[in-house]
């Protein structure tokens, strides 16, 4: 999946991937896609939940060798 920016969260556990995503989203423009790379399994359910709470769009994820790539789109400013 194509993303405008990537956020490396390898080696970080809850809540850091979500906290960092929220901080990063402040820099993004509406419509841009962020790729979050994480090895914390919690992110699989945490990121969709974060999207539900904040109203941003969860586009999907890919998992390979324990590396989870999550794609989120900034739906509003």
């Amino acid at each position: 999946m194509k993303a405008d920016q990537t956020l490396d969260c390898m080696g970080l556990y809850c809540p850091m991937p979500i906290v960092k995503t929220a901080q990063k989203f402040k820099e993004l423009k509406k419509g841009e896609v962020l790729e979050v790379v994480s090895d914390d399994k919690g992110i699989k359910l945490d990121m969709p939940a974060w999207c539900t709470a904040t109203g941003h769009e969860f586009l999907g994820m890919e998992e390979k060798n324990g590396e989870i790539r999550v794609y989120v789109k900034k739906a509003h400013s």
Binding site: C14, P15, I18, V19, T21, A22, Q23, W50, A53, T54
Partner: peptide, 12 residues
């Protein structure tokens, strides 16, 4: 603090 910072990240 984990819950507080996560809550703030979720826009609360």
């Amino acid at each position: 603090f984990i819950l507080a910072t996560t809550g703030a990240s979720m826009g609360m």
